[in-house]
Write a protein that binds this DNA or RNA. Structure first.
Lengths: 248, 248
DNA sequence: TCTATTTATTGTAAAAACAACTATAACTAT
DNA sequence: ATAGTTATAGTTGTTTTTACAATAAATAGA
């Protein structure tokens, strides 16, 4: 009996009855951003039971009645748009976290969930609040009540993954806007990791990593508090960096 | 509309008809080992269509008629046993790789697959061939024909993951038996990565990583080819190592 | 027994990377 | 002009890496 088999006679189970093993498959998304000097995640408040009035990650079932069938990634973007009003082009990065298959994770019936974590950059134009019911970015350190379903576990894994990827990948740039300064990039690390990094050493590390950032040739406007205006960079072509950024 | 919803009226899709979105969910396993100085993966030959007579990763559907429902991990162990005769206690390590949800990955109907990668240690007693139909360890570098379904992609991802984890984790010890020498451990790295590593530097790196290996106090029997007998170690308590092993 | 060979393990020195710190550059506000 | 502020470049000692040399402990054959 091989993977992906039709629901016909199951030789291994020694029973020649046809058993329907189909189950619901959903997608949940942990969409992160850095706003207001905080590491935040997008949550929605559930309007129906179970877990009514509790906060949850946005998500929903993979639909089989759209085109030739949705990919899980398409479901992720669709549900984000439907539940929070955030359209695909406002999501800078999306990556699969894994499948969550505890048989009791949904109290009603069997649901497998495929979890994603994504990053929304700091946007220049806030675009106003979405018209969807109740969706908010919440600081991850201030989420006290437990989330619906097993979303505590999913969120915890997503936070771990995001923090780990900062070390050896360039995804930190996804938190920034189109153009950013090295200090803005360093603040992403500091806020997501909850540490403080040496500015000089961070700068040298980033600039010596080939393809991490790309010089725009222009400077940012100097802030009203004074100080030398910082150079503006954009995201480079590299996805990975050979020498990791360390958390101290 | 939230994740893990009942198949009742779908408000977001603006249609008050009940649509059954359930689908088959299967588990596929890439089980690796190092045998005969080669990095090998366990494959089975399919006995039925589609992809009859093609090689595939072992796996099968998550069953809802076992107990209160199987977890995907339980499915992985069950299918390994059923299809290849390898029982759970012969698998040293198992970790989820991710979900594969291309709507066309199975030509018959929609199947989501949750992929795992695992490691089987070099065993002292080979236990003889399994009675299952046709299951063999194949060197990953010698798999020329494409595998069934999207198993090429899954295997490729599994190989990447296994190779990457050698750098910063202690899973290399899972390829070894209960007790092993530093040279045996180094050979795992060399074979899986396809590189050659400096013996002295490797030794120092491993022994200076706290919890990587644990001294048994005994030596291996010296081989017939001569040479100083190597010290025997067992796997330590650490799962991660702070200073990575590099591929050169 | 002696010697060459083999493998494991330890030592050493140059090079690279890191961490902490200092100096300079380029701005604002008074 | 001067002080304060932020960005960026330089400096120095320490740790880590890399390449290579030396020693240890065995086997095999003369």
């Amino acid at each position: 009996m091989n993977s992906s088999e039709f629901p016909v006679s199951d030789m291994q189970s020694n029973q020649n009855v046809e058993v329907d093993h189909r189950m619901n498959v959903s997608v949940d998304v942990a969409l992160f951003t850095v706003r207001n000097e905080e590491f935040q995640v997008l949550l929605i408040e559930r309007g129906i039971n179970p877990f009514r009035f509790q906060w949850a990650l946005p998500g929903g079932r993979i639909r089989s009645d759209i085109g030739d069938g949705e990919t899980p990634e398409e479901t992720a973007y669709r549900e984000l748009e439907e539940e929070t009003g955030i359209s695909k082009d406002l999501v800078g990065y999306l990556e699969q976290l894994g499948a969550y298959g505890n048989p009791k994770r949904d109290p009603r019936n069997r649901v497998i969930s495929i979890a994603y974590f994504g990053i929304r950059p700091m946007l220049d134009d806030p675009k106003g609040g979405s018209d969807a019911s109740k969706a908010e970015f919440k600081p991850v350190n201030e989420i006290k009540q437990s989330l619906a379903f097993d979303h505590d576990e999913i969120l915890s894994d997503a936070i771990d993954r995001a923090r780990a990827k900062l070390e050896y990948s360039t995804i930190a740039t996804e938190f920034c806007g189109e153009e950013f300064t090295i200090t803005e990039l360093r603040k992403v690390y500091e806020i997501v990791w909850g540490v403080s990094l040496n500015p000089g050493n961070f700068q040298k590390k980033v600039l010596s990593s080939p393809g991490f950032v790309e010089d725009t040739g222009r400077n940012a406007e100097s802030s009203s508090t004074g100080g030398r205006p910082a150079r503006l960079y954009r995201s480079g072509s590299a996805a990975l960096i050979n020498l990791p950024i360390r958390r101290n």
